[in-house]
């Protein structure tokens, strides 16, 4: 199943860093996301796009995860040659990830 079916996400940007939230529609799914969506599988999923370290923050207070991805925007929001320099669409790239549910 795609993450899209159980969670939503917004991408933020600062310099060459992309931050991707991952928020389950049902708060009961938070534990599953914690188990399934690891730093390793996010790095693999974004191979060729995110080149730097990925840090995962767990936020049980709002049942959400935050992935802070370094070297993710083709050099940075202002100087990247990508079409989507902010990496706004990367949130939906994350939601394309398949997990077993």
């Amino acid at each position: 199943m795609k993450l899209y079916n159980i969670a939503h996400s917004r991408a933020g940007d600062k310099g060459n860093i992309s931050m991707l939230s991952l928020i389950p529609y049902n708060e009961n799914d938070y534990e599953i996301l914690c188990q399934k969506v690891t730093v390793e599988c996010v790095k693999k999923h974004f191979e060729g796009i995110i080149h730097g370290e990925v840090v995962r923050y767990e936020m049980p207070n709002i049942s959400s995860l935050l992935f802070v991805c370094n070297d993710a925007l083709g050099g940075g929001v202002t100087t990247s040659l990508r079409m989507d320099t902010h990496g706004k669409a990367l949130s939906y790239k994350l939601l394309e990830m398949e997990i077993t549910y």
């Binding site: 939503h8 600062k14 931050m19 939230s21 928020i23 959400s64």
Partner: peptide, 30 residues
Amino acid sequence: QTAKEQLLYEVINPSEYYTPDVVTDFTSVK
């Protein structure tokens, strides 16, 4: 859902969100 998406928007470290006024903790927000 709209509030959670915005709370995490452009946050590099949820327990230390830097502004010139204060270093803010988002991990205890309800």
